[in-house]
């Protein structure tokens, strides 16, 4: 009787040495498919909606830099056409007013303890206006240039006060102080109804 089974045959142990290979394979799959892409963007804060009958606060003309983009993506600054690449310098000059020129924004005193007491904060506001036909690309370029102006001013102040660029600052109080000294003063015009 050849087919007769032997009683009590020992079950051989499962060879688990390939387990590591299998799991490595899976690991490699997840390693490759994981996209560690970080989403980046230009952060902004929208203003709360204004009630229709609200008075528009009076701002002196010298405190406003009117940047407008028309539907052909041409940039106008204070009613003069300007190349986008020039915008950063213009905005920097406007926001810092280094020589206290009477045409450029006034400054108000603000107490910022981390910067050693009083600091002159610019009253300047960049007013950004765009047409419905402006391309998004151009809009972002303008926003980018304006952000660059603010960031460079912050960097300069940070280097002067703390000796390191703004992005390398670690202490929250210092970051807040710089942000308060040079705010992102970009105001977007209310869209007009057509």
């Amino acid at each position: 009787m050849q087919i007769k089974r032997k009683a009590k045959k020992k079950v051989p142990p499962i060879n688990a040495s390939s387990m590591a290979d299998i799991s490595f394979l899976l690991l490699a799959f997840f390693l490759m498919t994981t996209t560690m892409d970080v989403d980046t963007g230009i952060a902004r804060r929208l203003p709360p909606p204004v009630p229709p009958q609200e008075d528009i606060p009076d701002i002196k003309e010298r405190n406003i830099l009117a940047v407008s983009i028309n539907k052909n993506d041409w940039v106008m600054v204070n009613n003069k056409p300007m190349d986008v690449r020039m915008l950063k310098e213009e905005a920097k000059n406007f926001l810092s007013n280094p020589f206290n020129s009477p045409d450029l924004p006034e400054k108000r005193m603000d107490t910022i303890p981390a910067l050693g007491g009083l600091y002159e904060v610019s009253k300047g506001v960049i007013s950004l206006k765009n047409d419905r036909g402006t391309s998004y690309d151009m809009y972002i370029r303008v926003q980018d240039e304006l952000t660059k102006a603010v960031n460079e001013l912050r960097d300069e102040l940070s280097k002067k006060e703390f000796g390191v660029p703004f992005t390398s600052l670690k202490e929250e109080t210092k970051i807040e102080a710089i942000k308060r000294a040079i705010p992102i003063a970009i105001s977007e015009a209310e869209p007009e109804e057509y």
Partner: peptide, 16 residues
């Protein structure tokens, strides 16, 4: 953006 303002979602980011 106007819709977002009205509903109170003020924190935005222009993806770039």
């Amino acid at each position: 953006k106007q819709q977002l303002r009205e509903v109170g979602a003020f924190k935005i980011s222009y993806s770039a």
